[in-house]
Design a protein around this nucleic acid. Structure first.
Length: 277
DNA sequence: CGCCCTGTTGGGGA
DNA sequence: ATCCCCAACAGGGC
């Protein structure tokens, strides 16, 4: 459930239920979720705490508490936060009982997700400053801020876009989609991008993420509807997962590469690697 | 049935 | 600065 649009969707879904509520009891079933050395601390600290608002930075979900502390949640690859319903989901790793009788479930098949409690705003800022860079949806996210972030870097632009310390919230899918829309080959050294290319990339990243939020973060997990058809998101991906299919822009066959250790889909016609100079 | 590969992420070590 | 591997599990191909 990761990438910025998915986290933002979880935030918006939960805010009406969790915002302004008091947590009556918290249960952490999987100690790996929190600091393994002190697994009971987070549950104890959450019990009786009142939530003010839910925020987000990059892929981190921020559960702000009335005492000034914040529960920093990262869903990694398969984490999710759900309201308890008659149908009990699998892989429940933690539960929050709210004062209105509702229960919020944290599920995570692969158990990569993390809950971390930070004491105050200063600790939160410090935590985020070393992990999350530019917010692609902020008004001040422009080609110039990308240029500053990428200056002098020789790593492939896709690796830079995926580096959360440079740009927060972009994952493998939206990186491929944005690079295709911007007509940039993922192996292009980040520092070699022209101002025009950087502008296309900044616009494409923002557009791809906004589209994902609009689609309510439906990702490959939700591709198949119960009827076996395709979900809305699959039709919106233009290159991701589509090797062997024609590029929707030019018709040439989409190919799969490996960049930054990840499966990478490109149109070899629309996305050319500039001649090294 | 088993084995191997892949994967929506981030952190640590080389 | 960059690259590789790993965490734990499910699903697909063979």
């Amino acid at each position: 459930v990761p990438e910025l649009p998915e986290v933002e969707t979880v935030r918006r879904r939960l805010e009406p239920h969790l915002g302004e509520r008091t947590i009556a009891a918290a249960r952490v079933h999987d100690t790996r979720l929190v600091d393994p050395a002190r697994p009971d601390d987070v549950a104890a600290a959450l019990a009786g705490a009142t939530v003010t608002t839910l925020g987000r930075r990059g892929k981190y979900l921020l559960v702000h508490l009335a005492d000034g502390s914040t529960l920093v949640v990262h869903l990694r690859m398969t984490g999710n936060l759900l309201l308890a319903a008659p149908a009990t989901p699998a892989h429940i790793r933690a539960e929050l009982d709210l004062d209105d009788g509702a229960t919020v479930l944290y599920t995570d098949q692969r158990r990569f997700g993390t809950w971390r409690l930070v004491a105050d705003d200063e600790a939160l800022d410090q935590f985020l400053a070393t992990r999350v860079g530019l917010e692609p949806l902020d008004p001040d996210f422009t080609w110039r801020s990308l240029q500053t972030a990428f200056r002098g870097r020789r790593a492939p632009v896709k690796a830079l876009v995926l580096d959360q310390r440079l740009v927060g919230g972009v994952g493998n899918i939206y990186a491929d989609e944005a690079l295709h829309a911007a007509r940039i080959h993922p192996l292009t050294p980040g520092g070699a991008l022209s101002p025009a290319a950087l502008r296309r990339l900044a616009d494409a990243l923002r557009a791809a993420l906004e589209m994902g939020i609009e689609a309510q973060g439906a990702t490959i997990r939700d591709f198949r509807t119960p009827a076996g058809g395709y979900g809305s998101m699959q039709e919106r991906f233009r290159v991701f997962g589509r090797d062997g299919e024609p590029c929707p822009v030019c018709g040439k066959t989409i190919v799969k590469l490996r960049v930054a250790g990840r499966g990478t889909y490109i149109c070899p016609h629309c996305q050319r690697l500039p001649r090294p100079s």
